[in-house]
Design a protein around this nucleic acid. Structure first.
Lengths: 154, 154
DNA sequence: TTTCGATATTTAACATGTTAAATAATTTTG
DNA sequence: CAAAATTATTTAACATGTTAAATATCGAAA
């Protein structure tokens, strides 16, 4: 019998408030944006990560798995599973590299390109809407700041 | 040498480049920051999400599961599993609410407070370092912009 | 050439994300 | 008051995140 209504705790601010925490703010902001996209992607039967893979390959094909993982910000083990699923649905194709038996080359497939052409308009509309609501200047400013932060790791 | 590239595809920019995509930038930025934290958390045997739960309860206890999920940005099903794990390790405690048999009240436990006091200094040091490297003004500016974005959903 | 270290990908194991559905308790309605 | 709608939490099922280890192949050195 686990109960014991302990006295309320309001600890001294050893840590910054979770409301003003950079990692949490980044997470929440991403959630707000993705909440707009997920219904569209679901409607087309692809997950957020699968869509990232397709998009990256839509920008450039072929790419080896390492490059693809890097650009789509997906870890190698996840990519292995995603590739398998997308290949089975013929949205992407997998090929080997002559001269290096380790590498796997991935390309967008015709069905993948069709998917991109379908999702693109809806996707763009959402980006535009977000940009409009936050304001174009702040939108660009935010992207710049994020880029600065991202470049810190280098 | 990576073998001869097959006919490369460079699609017309139907979509914005993945490099300048808001969701991807948010994801990458978060990764850069969290990469600094993960080793510390791992050293103390807690995952990123478990740490968020502990931190929120450190700020205020008790909280019911719904409030906790909201503040820690964790979905209810995940929270159920995390609570179970943290309770078994006696980092948090679970109690019932008199008057509403549905609700579960969670509180930080002494062992949890000890953990917070251990992780806090290292955590703060990393926040300070990130803030220093990006610059205090831009750091605040970034948090402000993220807050603006987060408030869009309301 | 053979061996050893490095690289690319996959597999494994477990935690979390995500959506839908199930449970249980409370509140609202008729 | 009893049935129905609502709310809080959990369970289920599957995808992905995460770290470590296994595989396979390549490249460099002895």
């Amino acid at each position: 019998m686990p109960a014991k209504p302990s006295p309320a705790i309001r600890s001294s601010p050893l840590l910054q408030s979770t409301r003003r925490s950079l990692p949490m703010s980044l997470l929440r902001a991403r959630e707000v944006v993705m909440a707009q996209f997920r219904p569209i992607l679901a409607q087309h039967g692809v997950s957020e990560q699968q869509w990232r893979v397709i998009r990256v390959l839509g920008e450039q094909s072929p790419l080896d798995a390492t490059e693809l993982a890097e650009r789509a910000s997906i870890l190698a083990p996840s990519l292995t599973r995603i590739i398998k699923a997308l290949e089975e649905r013929k949205l992407i194709t997998r090929g080997k590299v002559e001269g290096d038996g380790r590498r796997v080359m991935l390309s967008i497939a015709p069905k993948g390109q069709v998917l991109i052409s379908k999702v693109s308009p809806e996707s763009s509309a959402i980006y535009d809407e977000v940009q409009r609501r936050i304001g174009p200047e702040r939108y660009e400013q935010l992207l710049d700041l994020l880029e600065t932060l991202i470049d810190l790791e280098k």
